[in-house]
Design a protein around this nucleic acid. Structure first.
Lengths: 244, 244
DNA sequence: CGGGTTATTGACGTCCCTCAACAATGGTGG
DNA sequence: CCACCATTGTTGAGGGACGTCAATAACCCG
């Protein structure tokens, strides 16, 4: 239980240092330690438990009817999460080894929200942040090519994780990335090598990515960048907005 | 302004009839009427205004850097929505003609949430419903084939709209569907005809869809249904969960 | 050392995006 | 009322991208 007390110390220090949204809850938090691929218990009723990621990484995923797994949300240190959906059978699992979470009872969260007005507002902001996270994922998945998806995924990951000058350590496997982006694992690999050959990223080991050229990652098409001459015909421009 | 007063009447009656989550707000609601493709004004600050769809349909969309439009959320009668994201430039537009919304000031919502505990809980549920909606869209977009995407989109639409025995009236154009599913318009059309030829749906007019065979829509692959003999190798089964 | 997981690359077939042409629809003004 | 035009919807041909199958390497752990 060395890791657990260490995580608790880290948690306390972080609470003291930065402005924690859930600071009213810290005395009621239950610190939990998870191993890689270990499931996080979530109740079926909506938001029965609230979690805060201290270290590691967590994925929330659903199984399709054809057996494929879709990662619905990826939580990194500093993120809150909870399970809302009633009908979908979702599983929450720790991705990284030694993932530590702070767990709050949903009932206690409700009570605190009733008493403390400021806390209730923070609670709403937590929900907003979750929505923003899923929405970003939707934009990433909606990308045209696989290289574009992987590129914007790396950029999103870099902006979320505490990065040291564009150096990202991937907390997830290629399979997880594939299930997050809903592409095949092989395509993810090929996208990585393609991005590296194009000078966009630099792979140091399998899990460490250094972003060399952000512009290449942001460019959606690989068609010899010529400063975006005009919107493609697929984008129907302003014809809709001008109607009526 | 005939339509506006009619919508207001409808709104009042609906409030009286069913249990409206925002019933504490009805006297502060501002009823607004929108024409097709008319933009709904949203402030840049998060959740500056809350909206409730009375009739019609509304889309919230973002423009990608390559010019393509991505619909991030689709709101039907009975849905609440608000704009959360700060950095993304999102536009909210009415899809259907004579779209009527009830608008609430975000400030007043905050005030009411501070006074009324029950209302604050309802407010959280509204946020949860929005999350659930975006999440469903994520699962739909993550589908493998275009036919599968269109099929699950139709099923989701049928479960959301007040349907008369599987009869759906699409409030959006093929272009909107394409931007919702992030596929090309032509592929959407081909998927419709393919689903019709397979006997899954029946097109009565361009915008009216009757669902004939739900099973065909739910089947992800068109590979001659043989009762799902085994999960495909792409789905890696339980090998992950069993690790450690 | 051996076995399982993870990662990478190639060959091949299929799905879908693009371009193109055209039909159907709806609104506007003469 | 009808011609006109913009929008919307549909279908075909061709090529590129990605999923699938396969083989292999690298890595971790007992």
């Amino acid at each position: 239980m060395k890791a657990k007390t260490r995580a608790l110390d880290y948690y306390r220090r972080m609470l003291a240092a930065q402005n924690h949204a859930m600071k009213g809850l810290d005395e009621h938090a239950k610190i939990m330690l998870f191993a890689r691929s270990q499931e996080v218990p979530v109740n079926s009723e909506p938001a029965a438990h609230w979690y805060y990621v201290i270290t590691g990484a967590v994925r929330r995923s659903a199984i399709r009817s054809d057996g494929r797994r879709q990662i619905l949300d990826l939580m990194l240190p500093g993120d809150f999460f909870f399970v809302v959906d009633r009908n979908e059978d979702q599983t929450v699992e720790a991705i990284a080894e030694e993932t530590t979470l702070a767990s709050y009872s949903g009932q206690r969260v409700e009570q605190l929200a009733q008493r403390d007005v400021e806390f209730a507002r923070e609670l709403r902001n937590v929900a907003f942040q979750t929505m923003s996270r899923i929405q970003d994922q939707l934009l990433i998945i909606g990308g045209v090519t696989a290289v574009e998806k992987v590129g914007s995924f790396l950029l999103a990951l870099a902006s979320r994780s505490s990065n040291d000058k564009g150096q990202i350590v991937l907390p997830l496997t290629r399979y997880d990335i594939a299930e997050y982006l809903s592409v095949s694992v092989e395509t993810v690999c090929r996208s990585f090598t393609s991005l590296q050959q194009r000078g966009a990223i630099r792979l140091a080991g399998k899990r460490t990515v250094r972003i060399i050229n952000r512009n290449v990652l942001e460019e959606k098409n690989e068609h010899e960048v010529d400063a975006c001459p005009a919107a493609p015909s697929y984008a129907r421009g302003e014809s809709r907005s001008c109607a009526h």
